[in-house]
Each structure stands twice: as C-alpha cells, then as structure tokens.
Nucleic acid binder design. Structure first.
Lengths: 112, 112
DNA sequence: AAACTTAGTTACAAAAAGTAATTAAAGAAA
DNA sequence: TTTCTTTAATTACTTTTTGTAACTAAGTTT
C-alpha cells in the first residue's frame, strides 16, 4: 500500500477548505479589498475574514494597509499563492467542459 | 464587478469539499476498493461512503460490484473524473515546491 | 447454525460554517 | 471637540458538516 505524501495531504486540506479556491481565484488577476471579495462571492464576512487570516498565515496572501480615507486594505497573492494559478485554471477549464448547465440548475434548485 | 461563472463555482464547491481531492487522487492510477481508500487516507468510513456516493451521483466515479467471495466493490474514475488529473497533479507539484517540512510538522503538532 | 469478511449505516458528540447584529479604527464633518 | 462615515472586521447564536465508534447486511466458510 502506497504512502500518502504529507506535503500533498496538507496542500489538499488547505485547498479543500471551503471558499479557499474561489478566494484565490479572485486574487489571481489583481489585488482586491475585503469588500470586493465579499461582493464577488457568496461568502459571509465572518468566514472571509477567517480564510484571509489563514491564507496570510500560510504565506499565500499578503495584507496591505493603505492609510487613506477611508482606510483601504488590499489582499495580494504572494509568489506561493500565485503559483497555484495553473491548478486553478485547470479546474476552471475542467468545469467548462464537464459541468453542464443542468447540473448548475440542480445545485441551485437544491439550495432553495 | 466581474461575475463569477456558475460552472466554475460549482466545480470549486465540489472540489472544496473535504477529502474529495484526496479520494480522486487515490483513484487516479487505478481502481480501488472501499477498504483500500479507507486505509490510504485518514478518513472515516462514514464520510468515505458519503463522498463516494456523491462522486458517483456527479458522474465522476463508477461503482463496480464483483460477486466474489468476499464481495469486491471497486471504485473507478469515469472520463469526467479522470479529466481532473492535471489539476490534481498541479497541486501535487505545487505542494512539493511550496509546502515545507516545517509546515507539515506544525500541522501535525496542532492536531495533537 | 456460528463465525468471518467486506461494505457499508446509525446514533451521537464535536467542530465548522451560516446569519445578523455589533464593534473598531480613523479620518471628515459639524 | 463631539459626532458621523466608511471599511473591516468580530461576536453571539443557530444550523450544518464532520468525527467516532458501535452496529447491520449479505454472502461464505466451517
């Protein structure tokens, strides 16, 4: 029986946390502020805050504070975070090939 | 503000479910039976059963029953499931570059 | 029939996530 | 100086998901 690589396991635990993939995706092209990410995704402020803190601790995201009015805080991918771009783009391509409109509709229907 | 693609969102919700990435990874090279996956990952039987059922419903995994003794049930990736191979391999490569041994140790330490 | 094997399921406790109201900080307006 | 805005969180509370461990089902062997 093959042994699971601990680095890969940790990466999967990270990436497999709810919202993490979508948050990283939002930051792929440009830095975003808290409220922008919150508006772009159906995530609550509580969890977004928690996830950004985690991603910062993991060294995947940097938090930048600009002392303007009103205060502007931007989240940017670090090199480590940006290195996930290929994986994220792969999933994006996969979803365009393999997720049908019907499946999307079903998922929405189940929510309501 | 850019609109999030619903197919991609659905894909990320799927992939972002705990254990899904690791289960798919286990099935990448060959079909496996329930007990093999259970032994390879620190997942409980309850969740493994739930996830396999979900992946089957999503058309990513096929459940094959062989009427031997003892009964042998194998889980195989469908074409749809196998199409995630590049994404999974990307995350694997990423983890080898970017997850340090120290990070792995910390994660283990926090568990205990 | 009693025991063994794999593949689950069930009942219950613990952890994570969802929701909505509240707070913090910091400069602007009065 | 007080009060008001604005963004960025945090807190209190409920619901959902996950973890744990014991139990069931179906078929086989003894």
């Amino acid at each position: 029986m093959e042994q699971l690589c601990p680095r890969f396991e940790k990466a999967m635990q990270l990436f497999g946390k709810r919202w993490v993939g979508l948050i990283l995706y939002e930051l792929l092209n440009d830095a975003k502020r808290f409220s922008e990410i919150e508006a772009a995704l159906p995530i609550s402020g509580r969890l977004l805050s928690e996830r950004l803190k985690m991603l910062e601790q993991e060294g995947m995201v940097e938090r930048k504070v600009y002392s303007e009015f009103p205060v502007r805080i931007e989240y940017v991918l670090t090199e480590k975070g940006a290195a996930l771009q290929p994986a994220i783009q792969n999933i994006r391509q996969w979803s365009e090939h393999w997720i049908t409109q019907e499946e999307v509709d079903e998922t929405i229907a189940n929510k309501e």
